[in-house]
Design a protein around this nucleic acid. Structure first.
Lengths: 211, 211
DNA sequence: ACAAAAGTGTTAACTTTACACCCATGT
DNA sequence: ACATGGGTGTAAAGTTAACACTTTTGT
């Protein structure tokens, strides 16, 4: 029996949750999009395998993963019996920029996914759910927005996570009260409307649940 | 490579969290206590395997499990490479009574565990953490206390889950306000002090987070 | 000048916390 | 009668929710 580690790597681009997928070049599911994955070798742990996977296939290093669920349906891989262990990560825009997007590697909005191979659609659903819960933790949020960001940006993200709109004034009051961020002194430029203040996370933040 | 499913079955007995363990009769770890587990056969899913495990070894049926983490340290089993997938369940007193406790099968308080084999101590720590989080959901709570219970009983459980004391009046107010339970009309008998009112969960309850 | 998006403050409703005395039973 | 544990109410503090106008930019 074989075991594979699968990587659901998510980010926010233009305020939308996106997931990183690879296009499969061989049968089965040739031409379909799939999660990056790697078989577990006899002398590797799952954690080593998932790191090897993103290192080999995406040239990404030092990505923090969190284990999600195991998938074990008998026929989830039509060629042989494979049990899949899903890993999840959320990466910031700087990591996104390092990636070499091309015909076989791209970001997809999570509610507009392409044709997916295997049971990866199911795996992605679980991963997204998990990430959404994680984003209520201040420490995860800081990972996603390490550099300058605006409050409306974070608000839009939470509106997607919570699936409902938030009042701008109340959001701002509550988020600032959490004492996690500070103004950089700068403002956004070039957008429509009044420029937004830029913020950054403080050096040391308390780990707390938001919203 | 082999895969095993491991069962962390927890309950509350006399207000204490306990976990069900089996004593190992063969080397390695002969005489140590371990979690019930079962190897995954080529034509079984993980879910089928964990159900088979408790069905064969404990004669328990229709237990609901929730998947926890996978454990994959190379030497977690000294004899061969085995990746373990942990499953967690919380069962009520009626299920507890069905079990045939003996020299090789017993409940242990989670903070007074016996000598454990393999990496099961680590697995149990994760399971307990997961169960504690699940117990904030009204539906899980209902599973643990299907029959008559008292409010002080539930309060003591939450004090263990949250790791701090709760004010009796405030606890009562908040819990009753959640509109999950109703008085049975009866009271406890035979204990020291004033008898406590008995409650039961309502037939249909809303799934909500408590505390 | 107008459209677009961001910034700001107050009040009412609700939730949480703190706190002390009485009640029903067993010994 | 006393010890044990359960039941009850109120007030202050804190949190959340509802709500509208002004400011700064680009076109």
């Amino acid at each position: 029996m074989q075991i594979e580690a699968l990587a659901s790597i998510l980010t926010i681009i233009d305020g939308k949750f996106k997931i990183l997928l690879m296009r499969k070049k061989t049968e089965p599911y040739k031409g379909y999009w799939v999660l990056p994955s790697e078989f577990v070798e006899k002398n590797s742990t799952l954690e080593e395998t998932i790191n090897l996977c993103v290192s080999n296939k995406l040239e990404l290093h030092n990505i923090e993963f969190e284990q999600s669920l195991a998938f074990s349906a008998i026929d989830r891989n039509p060629s042989k019996r494979v049990i899949g262990i899903s890993y999840v990560s959320i990466v910031d825009s700087r990591t996104v920029e390092k990636l070499n997007i091309n015909d076989s590697l791209d970001w997809f909005e999570i509610d507009q996914l392409p044709k997916l191979g295997y049971d990866h659609s199911e795996i992605i659903m679980e991963s997204v759910e998990m990430i959404k819960n994680k984003l209520r933790e201040s420490t995860t949020l800081k990972k996603l927005f390490p550099s300058d960001f605006t409050l409306p940006e974070i608000q839009r993200m939470y509106e997607q996570v919570l699936n409902h709109d938030l009042d701008r004034r109340n959001f701002r009051k509550k988020f600032l009260k959490a004492d996690l961020i500070e103004e950089t002194g700068d403002k956004t430029i070039g957008n429509n409307g009044r420029p937004a203040k830029l913020y950054r996370f403080k050096e040391e933040i308390e780990s707390k649940l938001l919203f």
